[in-house]
Design a binder for these strands. Structure first.
Lengths: 332, 332
DNA sequence: AAGTTTTTCCAAAACGTTTACATTAAGAGT
DNA sequence: ACTCTTAATGTAAACGTTTTGGAAAAACTT
């Protein structure tokens, strides 16, 4: 049977209000009484009932985490960061997987709301997400979501990452550089494309982009887009892919087409998921501190919940280049 | 402000008990009254408070999911299955990541217990886990945990998978087949090794195993074990790795050592994580229906919770061989 | 028409906490 | 000796549900 405050009160010979106070370190309870009660509670293995607590006070110490696809290592590492920080601070996280579906995202927001979570962390599937509007609890967007100055956001400087990529390729002598993108609805795609475009224009190079309109970023979509280009005899010397998953599809297309990476075509990705550093892949890419980003946004959320601190709203981290084996210098 | 039963009762002109009954489809409330109340509840956007519910009734509709490492695609796909089935049945899941630490596993069991989840699904880090002993709620082990006849378990036939692997290699003419294992504390390692050993013995071949004593299965551990063998001039023609992650490390070691997979050494893995089918990897491996296993164990847990049905205790699924490019026939 | 059953609803208790308010006891100030 | 504080504890209400035990009203019996 479950031990309640009353049981402890009986054992200690005090009222249960005193027990409650003692256990929550309320100042006006005698030191000895407090210690005694704590000892008894310990011995009886008392665990406060979160429902009763939640009913009275207003927080549940639960955080909702919404991601498009937890089986994508990018989101898994984000989740790992969130979980680690949350756990350290006594919060539990609800995992919600939307499968790249905005409708499911909305459904989950409602479910989490109904569950009375204290706050929500979401990596949305589109920039224009407006969950924050229908919500009375704090929400923090991570990597994808709107970036007004009235919402909380943690992400990477996508444009800068793209610029680094393209500059790197240009320095290697590439002039025919294509961009293979992802869902148009995302700022992830938009900003990376912008960085690409501006850098190309800066060097007076022709922009050559294949932005597909699927709603997800996948190996398959990268494969399709690349294959399409190749079949149309549009063969660039380098391809900047919107992210690693897509880049892996691009590589597959190129090699199946009978060309070599990096000999015939250089490929660069974005994200640096763990598999990109794998021996047989060694994908040159832009590194994001995924774990730290997960932690960061949880820190922000918890600060918001505790109202102890006023965190920065928009948090844009700096990316950096991970040079590996999928890009080579063009000799003229 | 949050809408409560009372608000609806006032609006509908009935007592709040009636509202409660109407909304939970209790038989003795008039059809028209019920419909009216439901309509009003809908209009007022009423959401029952889970804390109040949890306090009265005894279930919270929350399930704890404990895994060693969510950033490992194997567990991520398991989690995906769990999440999908749970969500369809109105349950939310708490994600708990132990980082391959049994102590954290125990801590999480306590936390989940304190949170009053209805049940727990766990992929433990060792066969001898005994969380079920200290628990008054249902628990289902998935892929790793004890297999007595008094606990619930969902997993794959590891031994059969191993036999399939080794038989496949033997059929290809391999006689010098090494086993590279993982944590000794797991039945995963034990059973796969058994399958390997028995098949080798059946064919009168020499058993050659390198089972390391780390507590986790990782690329690094596979790399180290393989490299050790190679440096000692112990170069088999084929290696059966305990799982895909380890196999990837093995491949890296072999290729860094200057040999080719599959030309010099064939490699076979176990699990079939999504990255194994990737173009540049094409790892021959044993496929496990991870998503389905996740769903299956959630189904079992929910049946247990609803007490409507008596599920099988031990559920062992059949593996199958995914033939790809990392094994070749030895020509004599 | 009186009794019986059925339908439909209400009042109140219960769940386990937290907390505002009340009470007591003791010590301090006069 | 008396009020006045202060510290320590108790009492009871509150949180939003579900549920038990009736009760009033309606519908059947005979």
């Amino acid at each position: 049977m479950v031990v309640t405050l009353k049981d402890i009160a009986k054992a200690a010979g005090v009222s249960y209000a005193t027990v409650s106070r003692a256990l929550s370190n309320h100042p006006d309870v005698n030191y000895e009484t407090r210690e005694k009660i704590k000892r008894i509670a310990q011995e009886m293995n008392y665990i406060p009932d979160p429902s009763a607590r939640g009913l009275k006070g207003k927080n549940t110490n639960m955080i909702g985490l919404i991601v498009p696809d937890i089986s994508n290592p990018f989101f898994a590492e984000l989740a790992l960061g969130v979980e680690s920080f949350a756990n350290e601070n006594g919060y539990c996280i609800f995992l919600c997987n939307t499968n790249w579906d905005y409708e499911r995202e909305k459904t989950y927001i409602n479910i989490l709301n109904a569950k009375r979570v204290d706050g929500i962390i979401i990596s949305s599937v589109m920039e224009m997400a407006d969950h924050h509007r229908n919500l009375s609890i704090p929400i923090v967007y991570i990597t994808e979501g709107p970036k007004h100055d009235d919402i909380y956001y943690v992400g990477i400087d996508n444009k800068m990452g793209a610029i680094m990529s393209v500059e790197y390729l240009v320095k290697f002598g590439h002039t025919n550089i294509a961009y293979i993108g992802g869902s148009e609805k995302t700022s992830t795609n938009k900003e990376r494309f912008e960085g690409y475009k501006e850098t190309m224009q800066k060097h007076n190079l022709t922009v050559n982009a294949n932005i597909h309109t699927f709603n997800s970023f996948s190996q398959k979509s990268g494969y399709k887009a690349a294959m399409e280009m190749l079949i149309n005899k549009d063969i660039p010397t380098a391809i900047f892919a919107v992210n690693d998953i897509v880049a892996l599809g691009v590589i597959q297309a190129i090699e199946e087409f009978g060309l070599d990476v990096p000999k015939d075509v250089s490929v660069i990705g974005f994200d640096d998921i763990s598999f990109s550093s794998m021996h047989r892949i060694k994908l040159t890419t832009i590194r994001q501190p995924k774990f730290e980003m997960g932690r960061k946004c949880t820190e922000i959320l918890i600060k918001l919940l505790k109202k102890q601190d006023v965190p920065e709203k928009i948090n844009i981290l700096k990316p950096n280049l991970a040079i590996r084996n999928t890009c080579r210098a063009l000799k003229e």
